[in-house]
Write a protein that binds this DNA or RNA. Structure first.
Lengths: 210, 210
DNA sequence: CAGTAAATCAAACAGCTGCTTGAGTTCTGA
DNA sequence: TCAGAACTCAAGCAGCTGTTTGATTTACTG
C-alpha cells in the first residue's frame, strides 16, 4: 500500500475553510459587508460558529479574505481580456476588453452580478494590506496605457491614468446602481452597444479641451 | 401684547428633530449607513434615545430622511447649475454644470466630501418611497438632454439617458473611491481640467461606434 | 496500542443593538 | 386655573452580536 501523503484532518479543515469562504462571499453579495452575521455564514457553510475563529481568527478577516479572492478573480479575468490587445487596437477594443468581466456578469445576472457588487464595494475602499493585488492592478494599467498612448499623444500619462480610474468607476457603478440592474440579463451584444461607446469616449476625452 | 403664533413646545420639538437629522447625516458620512448607532446619534444631538422613536418612528427612518435631505440638496445644486445651460452650450459646459456640486465638494474636501459619500451611497440604491426626488432627477435629465440632443443627432434618446447615468456613476464614484480622495482639497480648476474632458468624452461617445 | 495533534462542537460569555415604558416637565388654550 | 397636549427623560427590555471555553471526536504517527 502506497504511503498516504494527505492528512484527512487537514483536508477536512481545508474544506470547511473553503465552504466558509464561499458562504461568506454569497452573503456579502446578498446583504453587503455590514449585513452578514457569523451565525448566518456558519449555518450556510454547515460549520460551527467556532470554526471561524479557529480558521480565520475573526469574522472580519474571513469577509476580507473572501472579498479579496473575488477581487483577485475579477482582476485576473480583466487582465486576461486585455493582454490580447495590441498598441494598434482601437479605443473601442480597449473598452471591450476593459469592461469584459463586468459585461459578462451583467449578462449573466443573478449571483455573478451580486458578487460584482461586492467586488465594486471593496474596490471602492480596499482594506489595508491588499498589496498582493497591487501587482494585478498594475498589470491591467500597463496594458491599457499602451493602447491609450498610441491614440492620445498629447495627453499626459497622469491624465490617462485618471481616465482609466474614471472608467473603472463607471464600470463598477453598473454593479452598484439601478442602471446596472436594468441591464442585468440582457444579451452581451446589447450591453456592449450601449456601454462601449461611452467608455471609449471617456478614454478619448473631449477634443475641445486643450 | 400680540398673540403668540408660535408654540414653544413645537418649536423645541422641531429643534431636536433638526439636531437629530444633522447628527445622523454627520455620522452617516463618517461611518456609513450600517455603522451608525442610535446612541451615538442621540448623544451627538444632545437628545434622549427615545426622541428618535418619538419624532421619526425608528432609527431607519431617521437615517433615510437625513440622506434624502442631503440628496435633495445635491440635486437642487446640480439643477441650479444646469438650468443656466442653453441648447447651444458645448458638451464641456454641460459636463461642468453636471459635475459642479461634486467638484465643489471635492475642492472643499473634509465634511462636504464625506456627505457626498452618503449621497452617492444612497443614490446607488435609493430606498423605496423617494418618489419625491423623481421630479428633481427629471429636471436635471431634461436640462442635460436638451444639450445632448443638439450635439448628437444620430443617437437615440435611450442611449443619451444611459450616458447620463454613466456620467452620474463616474461622478459619484469620485466620492466613494480613493481616486476621489486623492483629488480632495485640490483647486477647482485643476479638478475640472482632469474630470471635464472625460465626462464630455463620455457624453460624446466614440465616433467609431455605429 | 498509546500518544498526540487537528478539527469540531455545544454552551456560555459580555457587550451592544433598537426600541419601549411610564413617569416627569413644560407649555398652551379655554 | 387647570385639563391636556407636546415633549423629554432614566431605566429597562428582549434579542442579537462576535468571541471564547473546555470537552469530544477524528485521524495520523511512532
Amino acid at each position: 500500500m502506497p504511503p498516504k501523503n494527505v492528512d484527512l484532518r487537514r483536508e477536512a479543515g481545508q474544506r470547511t475553510r473553503d465552504q466558509l469562504l464561499t458562504a461568506a462571499l454569497d452573503l456579502l453579495a446578498e446583504r453587503g459587508p455590514e449585513g452578514v452575521t457569523l451565525r448566518e455564514i456558519t449555518e450556510a457553510a454547515g460549520a460551527n460558529v467556532a470554526a471561524v475563529s479557529y480558521h480565520f481568527g475573526s469574522l472580519h478577516v474571513l469577509c476580507e479574505t473572501a472579498a479579496e479572492h473575488a477581487l483577485a478573480r475579477y482582476l485576473d479575468a480583466q487582465h486576461e481580456a486585455m493582454s490580447a490587445l495590441a498598441p494598434s487596437s482601437t479605443l473601442l477594443e480597449l473598452a471591450a476588453a476593459f469592461a469584459r468581466p463586468m459585461v459578462d456578469a451583467l449578462a449573466a445576472g443573478g449571483h455573478d452580478l451580486a458578487v460584482m457588487r461586492t467586488v465594486a464595494r471593496f474596490g471602492a475602499d480596499p482594506p489595508a494590506g491588499w498589496d498582493r493585488l497591487d501587482d494585478k492592478f498594475d498589470e491591467t494599467r500597463r496594458d491599457a496605457l499602451r493602447v491609450l498612448k498610441a491614440h492620445l499623444h498629447g495627453v499626459k500619462e497622469r491624465e490617462l491614468v485618471f481616465r482609466l480610474r474614471c472608467a473603472a468607476g463607471m464600470v463598477n457603478w453598473l454593479a452598484l446602481a439601478p442602471i446596472g440592474a436594468e441591464l442585468a440579463g440582457k444579451p452581451t451584444k446589447q450591453i456592449e452597444r450601449l456601454l462601449l461607446p461611452v467608455l471609449a469616449g471617456a478614454f478619448r476625452g473631449d477634443p475641445a479641451a486643450s
